[in-house]
Design a protein around this nucleic acid. Structure first.
Lengths: 190, 190
DNA sequence: CTTGTCTATGCAACGAGTTGCATAGCAGGA
DNA sequence: TCCTGCTATGCAACTCGTTGCATAGACAAG
């Protein structure tokens, strides 16, 4: 399972608490993996008990203490081993595509608003990714020569950007199709 | 959950057995949803007990009997209701991206073969999708004017094609990055 | 004649992911 | 004063998804 490995990578990049990890999963890690705080806490606990992670309780001012996790040697070794194992190319799950095919048995035009809403969400995501790219990699405040870790983070971010651009363009195609069907066939319920 | 809805859509397009559905999930449905036969049988059983599906036992020659499922009125109604509810834009899970970011703590060059293997898998998938498009939608044997259902199937397939093309191009970018890092930084283990 | 593959359905166990809820201090606004 | 929201961690129950295994007849290759 890859949540373990995503956590190890994130902690190697920078140690942090469960809460902080949860926020990273909402942001930078979010464009290739998602996890809720409940999932993260549960996995952190298990990994700690297996000796993969080290913990340090950090007292804070005006805030609850936090447990700062970092990758221990066995965790690092487990990650290295996984990196050398082949994995299956992932299969996607796309709810909206199910809806689009299902629209043949309902009114296709009634899906237009939903598709537009999704397209807007993807536009918003793209804007965030592009802002992050400028801030961390291509803008004037970005480190001048990127190190290997930053180069790899950047190429993964470019993947997220390409994904969003592709999706936005495809949803244009979907919208055009739905409009076309709305004009020609009023209802096509089998 | 969308497996239920994917099954309803597929059975509305054409009734079939659990086994047949499993094969559809390997093929046409596979570019937007995946499921194993175990999952499908379990859900079919539950949906039948809930009255969403109708079953008919079909005796066959030289083969085991099959249970042919079709969507019943309550199933159709449940699908229609879901189609009118807004859903959350989906979040992806991309193991390979985890590996790419993890490569910063290992040898980036050792990932090249794995990335090439994935790229080849996506090329194969793209070839299958394009063959299917020619056969069902754009080739000489395709139905002359497509009906609404076929138009919608086609636009979803175009989404799958766009996805694969984007991924193949991005993996070129990844490979170029890994080669670049292999030349400049021998190992960059933090 | 045995092995393997295809059709066809299913159970059991486990691991991954989701949802709802609980606690608790601090800060800011109505 | 009360309500909302943020940081911070966690349990319990449930559903979803994966893996391994079992059954069973038909057919083809060796």
């Amino acid at each position: 399972m890859a949540l373990e490995h995503a956590i190890l990578v994130s902690l190697l990049e920078k140690p942090g608490s469960g809460y902080e990890l949860a926020r990273r999963f909402e942001r930078s890690i979010g464009y290739f993996w998602t996890a809720t705080h409940q999932q993260i806490y549960r996995v952190l606990k298990r990994m700690e008990s297996e000796g993969m992670l080290a913990v340090r309780t950090v007292p804070q001012q005006g805030r609850p203490d936090k447990k700062e996790y970092s990758a221990a040697a066995p965790g690092r070794a487990a990650l290295a081993q996984w990196l050398h194992e082949p994995i299956e190319p992932e299969s996607l799950r796309h709810d909206l595509a199910v809806k689009i095919r299902g629209a043949a048995f309902d009114d296709p035009a009634s899906l237009i608003r939903e598709v537009e809403r999704h397209q807007q969400a993807h536009r918003d995501r793209l804007a965030r990714y592009l802002a992050g790219e400028l801030r961390d990699f291509t803008g004037p405040d970005a480190p001048a020569p990127l190190d290997a870790g930053q180069e790899l983070q950047h190429v993964v971010l470019r993947g997220g950007i390409a994904q969003e651009r592709m999706t936005i363009a495809w949803l244009d195609d979907v919208l055009a199709t739905l409009h076309r069907l709305g004009r020609s066939t009023p209802t096509s319920t089998g």
